[in-house]
Amino acid sequence: MLDQWLPENVSTFGQGVDNLFHAIYWLTLVVFILVIGTLIVFLIKYRHQEGKKADYIEGSTTLEIVWTAATTVIVFVLAMFSYPQWNNIKSPTQFPENPDVVVQVSGKQFNWDMTYPGPDNEFGTDDDLVLENELHVPVNAVVHIRLTSVDVIHSFFVPQLRLKQDALPNRFINVWFEATKAGRYEIPCAELCGFGHSGMLGYLNVHTQADYDAWVQERWP
């Protein structure tokens, strides 16, 4: 069911997200069926019938302890599996080092500005390249993004990468990804940013290494 609606995953950490998504899906589905099933059985079995009185039951300490403990255990097990995935995506100390590409992405009403540092690998120099709404990266390479904004809060979202991060004015937030499949993917803004929020859209172009090298060659001959 879930896979029918989820867009294809094309990032290295995306599979971990999808696995958790599926685990929670099955967990909640089973709980839902058990609880609603029990409810329906009770509604039918214990409906009012002439001459039949309800049983006087005030509660059960054993049962309260059982379902409190069971829920707590499930919650902590789920949390244990989730910490590493989250840290992997969002904790800068755990990002893969030595990125192949570093790009600064800056939101501004209502575009994404992509700034490449150029061959000197430094931002703010003459060989910087600024592209509007087009991000180019090679496939199977670690990409670091310096995310910022020049006006209000935007949110950098690439559904196929399972990556989302708000872009804040006057603050640089680092995110990373490694795309596993060449293609052209949309980068919508996911945080309300004004009347042009709907339609604020960039594109992530994931090239094969050869294509990417050609693109670099063309830009910085």
Binding site: V35, F42, Y46, R47, I57
Partner: peptide, 21 residues
């Protein structure tokens, strides 16, 4: 989820062996 589950199960427990109108 823990207190929420407690509440849900207690509502079910209230209907258990009741005489539901």
């Amino acid at each position: 989820a823990v207190p929420s589950a407690i509440k849900t199960f207690n509502w079910l427990g209230t209907m258990f062996r009741g005489s539901i109108r």
